[in-house]
């Protein structure tokens, strides 16, 4: 299971929401963080989030059991690791 952690702050809400909207994703609120977990790859389309570049490139707070294979102007893609 791969988990993406986003800081629970207003500027990152749209990023975590787009991450959470994909099939198979589960959302949880921890103190200070919003997490999105999936058994498969997690993909976030930057344009779908609508956030500015500074927010986009600082949105990912932590990654549990996953490997970031893409994080650029188009998308964030994280694949599960054992």
């Amino acid at each position: 299971m791969t988990t993406l952690y986003f800081l629970d702050a207003a500027e990152f809400t749209d990023v975590s929401a787009v991450a959470a909207a994909q099939p198979g994703a589960r959302v949880e609120r921890l103190p200070g963080y919003v997490t999105v977990t999936s058994n498969g790859p997690l993909i976030v389309d930057r344009r779908a989030t609508g956030v500015r570049h500074s927010v986009w490139y600082s949105a990912l707070a932590a990654v549990g059991h996953g490997r970031v294979v893409q994080y650029d102007k188009d998308a964030l893609k994280v694949e599960p690791t054992p």
Binding site: Y33, L60, G64, H65
Partner: peptide, 18 residues
Amino acid sequence: LDALWARKAELIASGVPA
């Protein structure tokens, strides 16, 4: 940065910030 993301996740999951 990949190592930082991974270590942060471990710390958060272990309840460090709680």
